[in-house]
């Protein structure tokens, strides 16, 4: 039987040293068994490598930064849809999720499907709300406190022991060993990302990640845990291995069951020396290492597309343990005209 062909648009083509997941997602889609694809890349900057990977991406359009506003994004997507007749869009950046979630009903009316967390899920899992999240869903999280005022720093030692982690609202985290360091990080991080600052209990242990897919009804469609083996100076995995850990899978299933999470996700977990697991962060999208999941038998992007199209998807039951991914950099040769084309016309 001839497979149906889907037009799928994907963002996050920045396969750089701190990579976006787009290129990995596209590789997964190209290997899907339930459909063939025509891939439209959506780019923000003219040097995103995925734009020039013509064997993976059929055509790329620039889209406006989220800061330009939802109406501007919608106008651009309408134009792209007219040309490409999109069936599905897979957004891959945290910062663009808010506008895409808001646009979901409008895009659906145009015939474009997505499979994203609800706005409520998206907000609730935010770093600032992690304590409440843990309490509400009965998931262990490191103790944390949101602070707005440098004066409140002095009372921290009565609640936290050193070292403690000082985190920014969106990015940045530093480990502080004294009140003076807390103050200095408070000032540095708040100058860059604004208030509040999050103080988090430091948990000694090993970091793990789980990627997976929830169907929005509480069921676990896919879940693959991974241990980072090599970490770049930006803290990104450059190599990792799939592992089998029932506790991690249990926590993942509990997370999905209790939140009824809809869409792809990545959990950042810490396991202390007593084997206790803590949830550090929830990323509301697929991770850049998603291709490992495909390699171990769970094509999560394919399942996500089928869910987006309203089809029934059988949960993955197994995956290969002990498979590794090792990332590598690759120098493409590109004609200047291609760069100028995407820069000037926003299409390639």
């Amino acid at each position: 039987m001839k497979k149906r062909k889907l037009n799928i648009a994907v963002t996050g083509l920045n396969a750089i040293d701190s990579p976006g997941p787009g290129v990995s997602v596209i590789r997964a889609l190209r290997e899907a068994s339930s459909f063939d694809v025509n891939i439209t890349g959506l780019s923000y900057e003219s040097l995103e490598p995925g734009i020039y990977m013509h064997d993976l991406v059929d055509r790329t359009y620039s889209i406006p930064y989220p800061a330009a506003g939802i109406d501007t994004l919608l106008a651009r997507l309408e134009y792209i849809h007219e040309k490409e007749k999109l069936d599905v869009i897979i957004p891959n950046f945290d910062a663009e999720l808010y506008p895409f979630i808001k646009l979901e009903p409008k895009l659906k009316a145009m015939g474009i499907h997505m499979f994203l967390p609800t706005l409520h899920q998206f907000e609730e899992r935010h770093k600032v709300n992690l304590n409440d999240f843990g309490r509400k869903y009965n998931i262990s999280v490191p103790k944390s406190k949101v602070i707005y005022d440098l004066n409140t720093v002095h009372s921290l030692p009565s609640e936290f022991s050193f070292p403690m982690i000082v985190k920014g609202k969106f990015y940045d985290a530093s480990i502080a060993y004294s009140i003076e360091q807390v103050k200095s990080y408070f000032n540095k991080i708040s100058a860059k990302w604004g208030l509040p600052i999050i103080i988090q209990e430091f948990i000694h242990g090993t970091e793990f990640n789980v990627t997976g897919l929830g169907d929005g009804k509480g069921n676990t469609i896919a879940a693959v845990p991974m241990r980072k083996q090599y970490i770049t100076d930006k803290g990104k995995a450059w190599g990792g291995i799939s592992i089998s850990d029932e506790k991690m899978l249990d926590m993942t299933r509990k997370f999905l069951k209790n939140t009824k999470w809809r869409g792809g996700f990545e959990l950042e977990l810490m396991k202390n020396k007593d084997g206790e697991l803590y949830l550090l962060e929830i990323n509301p999208r697929l991770p850049a290492w998603i291709y490992l999941a495909v390699g171990v038998g769970q094509n999560i992007p394919e399942a996500l597309v089928n869910l987006a199209l309203g089809e029934k998807v059988t949960p993955f039951a197994t995956y290969d343990v002990g498979k590794m991914f090792i990332r590598y950099a690759w120098d493409m040769i590109v004609d200047r005209e291609e760069f100028e084309q995407i820069s000037i016309y926003g299409e390639l």
Binding site: R336, F339, E340, S343, I344, Y345
Partner: peptide, 16 residues
């Protein structure tokens, strides 16, 4: 024609 200018000495591209 499209308003692109390329300076081969510096490798910079411009739009005009």
């Amino acid at each position: 024609e499209a308003g692109l200018l390329f300076n081969p000495v510096t490798g910079e591209s411009f739009s005009v």
